Simulated scan of single mutants.
Amino acid sequence: MSEDVLQGMENSAASVLMRAVELDHNSRFEDSLICYQEGIDLLLKVLKGLKDETKKSYYRQKIEGYMSRAEQIKKHVSQQKEEGKYHKQIRIEDNATGYSYEKLFKPYLNEMVYEVWVQDPYVRLVHQLYNFLRFCEMLIKGPCRMKKINLLTTLEDGNGKGQQLSALDDIKKSLMTYGVTLEIAFSNSIHDREIRFNNGWMVKIGRGLDYFKKTESRFAIGYCDYDLRQCYETTVDIFHAKHTKALSS
Rank of each mutant, 00 (worst) to 15 (best):
W201P: 08
R60L: 08
Y211V: 04
N110A: 01
I140R: 13
V116P: 02
V77S: 03
R229C: 15
I195S: 03
E10P: 01
R19A: 09
S78Q: 11
H76N: 06
K141T: 14
K75S: 11
V5T: 12
L165F: 09
L6A: 04
L44H: 09
K103P: 03
S27H: 07
Y211M: 07
S27I: 00
K45I: 07
Q37N: 15
C136F: 00
L125F: 14
D210V: 04
N110H: 05
T244Q: 12
K148E: 14
C231R: 02
K88S: 06
V46F: 02
R28W: 02
I205W: 14
K148Q: 13
Q230R: 14
S217W: 07
S68D: 03
E38C: 02
S78V: 08
V113W: 01
Q119R: 12
M112P: 00
Q61V: 11
D192S: 11
W117F: 06
N131C: 05
G222R: 10
E115R: 13
Y66A: 01
T54K: 13
T234G: 04
L152R: 03
K81Q: 12
K56S: 06
S248L: 12
I73W: 01
M176F: 08
R196K: 15
S15D: 06
V16W: 00
G160Q: 07
K213I: 04
H127E: 09
K106H: 06
I90V: 10
I90Q: 05
L228M: 13
K55R: 14
F212M: 12
L43H: 08
K214I: 10
E22K: 13
R124S: 11
Q128L: 03
K148W: 06
S2N: 15
R60N: 10
E93A: 11
E64A: 05
D94H: 08
G206E: 11
S32V: 03
S57D: 09
K81N: 05
E30Y: 07
Y223S: 05
K173I: 07
S32C: 10
F212H: 15
M138F: 01
C136Y: 00
S189F: 09
A185L: 05
D237Y: 13
L129G: 04
M202C: 14
F239E: 01
G208H: 08
Y66W: 03
V5M: 05
F197H: 05
A241K: 12
S166A: 14
D52V: 08
K74E: 15
M9L: 15
D24M: 00
Q128V: 04
G158P: 02
V21E: 08
G179S: 08
R218S: 14
R28C: 03
